[in-house]
Design a protein around this nucleic acid. Structure first.
Lengths: 182, 182
DNA sequence: GTCTATAAATAGATAGAC
DNA sequence: GTCTATCTATTTATAGAC
C-alpha cells in the first residue's frame, strides 16, 4: 500500500515538474497534455488519474513552479532589495537560461484568461513575493512598487525583440528598486 | 479603381479593428481567425486576401490597437506623469471596460511566444510609450521605470483574483511614478 | 475580393484492456 | 495506475465557384 501510494505520488510529482517547466516557458495554450506526459515519460491516458483537467494541472503547476524557482529556496536568500534585484533582473533569467524561471513574470498576461482556480493560485504566489519584498522595503507600498519593477520589468524585457533595449530596461529597474531607508 | 481599392481598404481595416480588440482582450491563442472574420462581418475564406497568416494579422493588430488606444490620441494628452498614471492605472482600464485597452500590458507575456515580426512590433510600440514617458520624466532611466510601473502594474493587477488587492497595487504604482523634478 | 467547401493537423477528454 | 485506441471538436490554411 505504501509503495503504491508512493508510486502514484512520484508519477504525479513528475507530471507537475514537467508541467511547471513547460508552462512557464511556453504558456498555457502552447503546451499540450501530450507534451507534458511525454516529458514525464508517461502517456496521455494516464493523465486523468492525477488531474481533472488541463486547467487543474495549470493551477497546480504554477505553485510547483514557484516552489522550484530559485527564489523560493531557503538557501541564498537575498539580504537586501538590491541583492534581490541583481538576482532576479538578469538577462539569464529573462532568456530562461535557468531551469525554472519565475512564473509571475513569464505568465502574467496568460493568467487573466484562465479560471478562478488559476487566478487564485497566481494571487497567492504573488502575495508571497510581496511579503518577501516587504522585508527589504520601507513599507508595503514600496514593496508593491518593488515587486512591480521586478516582475513587470522582467516580463516586458522578455517581450522585446531588441536585447540591448531589454538589458537597458533591466538595468533601469534595478536602479529603481528602493531599499529600506537607513 | 478607386472604389475597389477603397473597398478593399475598408475590409482590411474592419478586420484589423476586430482583431485589435479581440486579441488585446483574449490573447493570441484564444482568438481564431473565424472569430475575427465574424466580428468583421466577413467569412473565413476572405481572410487570406488581406493577410498571409494569423501571425501576420497579430502583428498588424498590435499596431492598430496601439493607435486606437486612447493613450495614442492627440487630444487629452496628459500633461504630467501623475496625470498619465491616473489615466492609465485605473480599474476600468484593467477590467477592460473601455473598447481598446493597452496591448503593451494586456499581451506582454503573450508576445515572447511569437515570431520576430510580432516582437518587433511590440518593441516599436513600447518604444513610443517610453518616448512619451520621457517627456514627463527626469531622464531616460526614470522614464523606463515609470513605463514599467504603469504597464507592469496594470498587467499584474489584471492577473490577480482579488480585486481589492489589484486596486491596492494600482494605487501603489500611481504613488511610485516619479515626476520631473521641479 | 468574397463566398462555400474541405483538406489536414492537433488537442482535450473518454473507454476499456491489462 | 498505466497503457492503446478513439471520439469529438476546433483550427489553420487552401481550392475553386462566382
Amino acid at each position: 500500500m505504501a509503495w503504491q501510494k508512493n508510486h502514484k505520488g512520484q508519477s504525479k510529482d513528475k507530471i507537475l515538474q514537467s508541467a511547471a517547466m513547460l508552462f512557464t516557458h511556453h504558456g498555457f495554450d502552447k503546451v499540450s497534455i501530450d507534451h507534458v506526459m511525454q516529458k514525464a515519460e508517461l502517456t496521455r491516458g494516464a493523465f486523468y488519474s492525477h488531474f481533472s483537467s488541463k486547467s487543474d494541472l495549470y493551477a497546480q503547476a504554477i505553485t510547483k513552479a514557484a516552489q522550484s524557482s530559485r527564489l523560493s529556496k531557503v538557501t541564498n536568500k537575498p539580504q537586501s532589495i538590491e541583492e534581490f534585484g541583481k538576482y532576479y533582473l538578469t538577462s539569464q533569467h529573462r532568456d530562461a537560461q535557468c531551469q525554472q524561471p519565475c512564473p509571475l513574470a513569464f505568465l502574467v498576461s496568460d493568467i487573466s484568461q484562465q479560471n478562478k482556480q488559476v487566478t487564485k493560485t497566481y494571487t497567492k504566489v504573488f502575495n508571497h513575493f510581496v511579503i518577501e519584498a516587504e522585508k527589504h522595503s520601507k513599507d508595503r507600498e514600496q514593496a508593491l512598487q518593488n515587486a512591480v519593477l521586478m516582475i513587470g520589468g522582467l516580463a516586458i524585457s522578455r517581450a522585446l525583440e531588441d536585447k540591448k533595449f531589454g538589458d537597458e530596461l533591466l538595468q533601469a529597474c534595478q536602479a529603481g528598486l528602493a531599499p529600506v531607508s537607513q
